[in-house]
Design a protein around this nucleic acid. Structure first.
Lengths: 368, 368
DNA sequence: TGAGAGTACGTTAGCGCTAACGAAGTATGC
DNA sequence: GCATACTTCGTTAGCGCTAACGTACTCTCA
């Protein structure tokens, strides 16, 4: 059996509550007693029973995180970063991967809440908003991640996806491309915002948006390589053929590039690509991929800090944190005169990825 | 406030314990009463308080997982798969990423244990075995993941790393290469086993192991692209130059390939590469990477099942589960006569990856 | 018919901890 | 010298649930 407060109290000849107070650093204990207690605790390798503490105090020091897919680099990095913040504040993390299934998401939310988490972070994969199964009514603070539900006045931490679309498309325009296509994501907040950004960037240059250049994936479950590949095959049949593609994420971009190479196109000369997400291997791909970096680690930190804040100050008006993304340019969108190995090593390779991710200081829009 | 058993009992005019029994499906309740109780529970949206249940019963229905780095695709996939198994059995997952730091690992083990998990899975990053800080003495069953500590007679789930080294090296030998180098991993079980496999495969062909062809990374903290790149630069200075390299993992392979391209070598003609881990993008890299697949998803499942087994039957002799890895051949190790785009599309590209790693991998050429 | 067995439900006593208040002892002020 | 305040420690009463046993009540069968 594990050592309990009671054991230490008996051992030291003081009352249980004195030991508890010493442990928690409460004021009305003499410094001498506290040291005596702490010393004995260390000797006996005492570990407070967090279940009992949680039951008695109503605080579990656990935060729940529900993501659509832990394997997705974005969520993995987010979770890692969040875990770091929480650990530094002695909070634990209960994690659930919903397998892109709203039913499972619902189940996970239920069970995670039953465990009495102090806060809940949800990157939802719900197609339409049916509310969060009672989370809103609960006293447990909850934060939406990555994907906002504007109708719900909830806390939110995510990327400025409109800016992502804008920046990516502007970049392609700046390289002289004019027939820019878009392989869109699901018809949820991030996808819709990136699409808006894409359209507005075109409008800025007086270029009309052509429907035939937009591949919709409104109802696709998993936006991966095959979606990009199939989308690209359709785009290749358009007349005139697009000369650039802004892809919803890096996975679709990889698939799209694959389809373009398949028919012997030269990248970026014939057709250029920009992805979104800047996943780890983007710089090492066959065609190193230009991408929009979401500073995911920073998102995790911000989300963690917000969660802790909400836990400590019960009532706060809904906070929206949107980080500005940054562009990482690589060979998929910019012609390089250098031999290929130099191109990879130099400006467009990993080095610049690190540089950008470190240096870029995304501004935080704290609406309200 | 959440609904409690007491509320339902009062509401229905029965005793609290009757409600509890109905909830848990215990035998000595009439079917009629049970239905009445369950119906009311559903109406009131009752959720059992898992903290209280855990405190009273000693079972939390939570499993803890501690990994060195959640961002590493292996651990992300493992965690995801484990989460799936646990969810199907109504278990939750507390996850901690130790940031490759033994100190943090120790801290995480302490706090996770304090939360009263029913089982603990540890993929340790300890450089040497100092024991698991009292986990062994605890009644909490624990399972070592990926990396075994043979001295400890603990449960283990991981890859047959010796086979991985053997298979990878045999493959390179089968393509006619004879001067095969190895960029090794840290001097822990997986790294040491892969090295042994490498050596034995050479011995099988009567080829003597040359020290100058083995790059040791015994004390390197993070085995990533940089390590591979630097290791390769050293290997390039050896005389005669190696004509193939088996790399500890895919990340080092990516770095190594980078260094080889840098000096204008042709892959795989001048020098061939095999990695290990078969991460998601291996098939999309500049030089699609031959790799050893660890069937990580299956490992997660096996580990989850073992954990549940241990939770239910207290005492079991130490169980060792080692899955045999498989080889996925791509263009980094096999010459292809086809033009590059066809090579990627065809035999050496994505297809073989799909074939081997069925579940989570992109099925890009759906040309069936 | 009444002891034994079975069924359905309830009572009691915690799990290990904390919140809120209470009770000593010591110091301070006028 | 005695009330007031402060310091230090303890008592009481739970948090919401479960384990283990207790108690009615019914049924069975020699």
């Amino acid at each position: 059996m594990a050592v309990r407060l009671k054991d230490i109290a008996r051992d030291l000849g003081v009352s249980l509550i004195t030991v508890s107070k010493a442990l928690r650093g409460m004021g009305d204990i003499s410094e001498e007693t506290r040291q005596r207690v702490l010393k004995r605790m260390a000797e006996l390798n005492y570990r407070p029973n967090m279940l009992a503490r949680g039951l008695a105090s109503g605080k579990t020091y656990i935060v729940g995180l529900i993501v659509p897919d832990l394997l997705h680099p974005f969520f993995a990095e987010f979770a890692k970063s969040l875990n770091g913040v929480l650990r530094r504040h002695n909070y634990g993390l209960i994690l659930a991967s919903a397998e892109e299934d709203p039913k499972i998401e619902q189940q996970e939310i239920r069970t995670v809440l039953a465990r009495g988490v102090d806060a809940l972070l949800i990157a939802s994969c719900q197609p339409t908003l049916h509310g969060f199964y009672g989370v809103e009514d609960q006293r447990t603070p909850f934060i939406l991640i990555d994907r906002d539900f504007p109708h719900l006045s909830a806390h939110f931490v995510g990327t400025d996806d409109y800016a992502a679309g804008l920046i990516a498309t502007r970049h392609l325009l700046s390289t002289g491309k004019r027939r820019i296509a878009h392989i869109a994501g699901p018809d949820l907040a991030p996808g819709a915002d990136r699409l808006r950004g894409y359209k507005d960037a075109l409008a800025e240059q007086g270029i009309s948006v052509r429907k035939q250049y937009i591949i919709s994936n409104a109802r696709v479950e998993e936006i991966g390589e095959d979606v990009g590949c199939q989308g690209m095959r359709k785009l290749l049949q358009r007349k005139p053929r697009p000369d650039a593609v802004f892809c919803y994420n890096d996975l679709t971009a990889i698939g799209a590039i694959h389809a373009a190479l398949e028919v012997g196109l030269s990248i970026p000369r014939d057709i250029a690509f920009v992805g979104c997400g800047n996943v780890r291997y983007s710089g090492y791909l066959r065609i190193p991929l230009s991408s929009i970096d979401q500073s995911t680690g920073l998102l995790g930190e911000q989300a963690g800090k917000l969660a802790l804040e909400l836990i400590n100050n019960r009532a706060t008006a809904a906070k929206h944190i949107r980080l500005k993304p940054t562009l990482v340019v690589r060979a998929s969108s910019v012609v390089s005169d250098l031999p290929i190995q130099a191109a990879v090593d130099g400006k467009s390779g990993v080095k610049s990825q690190v540089k950008t991710a470190k240096k870029s200081n995304p501004r935080i829009n704290a609406k309200k």
